[in-house]
Design a protein around this nucleic acid. Structure first.
Length: 288
DNA sequence: AAACAGGAACCAC
DNA sequence: GTGGTTCCTGTT
């Protein structure tokens, strides 16, 4: 990889297995939007625009330091997706999904933001989830100014724990307002050390997540995969259920059986396989 | 305008 | 521990 720092931006050459559409439109993150030039997103207290062409990744509004300290890991650039895909291509069925979503990568997102985002995602769709999160950030997050526009960081636990239920409902959270407030309080109190879950095993971290209000099996697996770096997590939502049944069976299968098939077939990278499958299922509207 | 889409809580059993 | 019902909002 060849890294060049320019005024207010960084360019990296020789990045393979990367496509912003596949990465930012596959339901793993909610704060990246295409603005006609590139994908603009808020991460921590930073706003950047990401543009990718032909192996060259351009990150606007950042520094070489931030690239090394944040973006390299956030974008999972240290992982060899070519190698993983080579394994996946051996499965004739998964191959179809991988060929289609060749540029998918799992982002390494902030555990706290991922926790709340996926509590909101329960019984919800991507468009609504994005709107709700945006309103929460506008109301409770710190403003960040860039390019004459105001963006907002994701609110700290304290802000959401102290927000009123009425306020959270006004953001469109609906009945999830209770879950958000309660879970924010659990994090604020230190009962659950959300960042510390990274250092635990998948099973232990999952058990802890399941003690939080609004976190069930599927949401827990999303947090483990997208926020806690557990690539073996295999979240099964309706789309993944449909595509797995479509590909690997002809009739409905219980979710626990789907997870078992995934574990056997995809092993420690089941979560990455899940992402190719999810993107493929939604694009092709499998089962709909 | 009623039906539908989307996971977790909660209460029976 | 399993099964059925309810929760909220936006879209069709």
């Amino acid at each position: 990889m060849n890294i060049i720092e320019e005024k207010n931006s960084v360019t990296i050459k020789g990045i393979k297995d990367f496509d912003p559409v596949h990465i930012f439109e596959c339901g793993q993150s909610f704060r990246w939007n295409y603005d006609g030039t590139g994908y603009v997103g808020v991460v921590q207290d930073k706003v950047v625009r990401i543009i990718y062409n032909d192996g060259t990744l351009h990150i606007e509004n950042t520094t070489l330091d931030d690239y090394h300290n944040l973006w390299h890991h956030y974008l999972d650039l240290g992982r060899d997706y070519g190698l993983i895909k080579k394994q996946f291509l051996k499965d004739p069925v998964l191959k179809e999904a991988v060929v289609h979503g060749y540029g998918v990568r799992i982002l390494n997102q902030d555990p706290w933001e991922t926790l709340i985002s996926f509590i909101i995602s329960a019984n919800n769709n991507i468009g609504r989830i994005k709107n709700i999160i945006e309103r929460l950030c506008e109301k409770h997050g710190e403003p960040i100014i860039w390019d004459t526009k105001i963006f907002y960081a994701f609110p700290e636990p304290e802000k959401l724990a102290n927000a009123s239920l009425e306020d959270l409902k006004l953001c469109g959270c609906g009945y999830r307002a209770d879950y958000i407030k309660e879970t924010a309080a659990s994090i604020l109190s230190g009962r659950v050390l959300i960042h510390g879950l990274k250092d635990m095993s998948y099973d232990k971290a999952r058990d802890m997540l399941l003690t939080l209000k609004g976190v069930g099996p599927k949401v827990a697996d999303c947090i483990l995969l997208f926020g806690l770096e557990k690539a073996e997590a295999f979240p099964v939502d309706v789309w993944v259920k449909r595509i797995m049944e479509y590909f690997y069976a002809d009739s409905p299968i219980p979710i626990k059986d789907i997870k078992k098939i995934a574990e056997e077939k995809f092993g420690l990278y089941a979560g990455i396989a899940q992402q190719y499958l999810f993107y493929y299922a939604r694009e092709k509207k499998i089962g709909k």
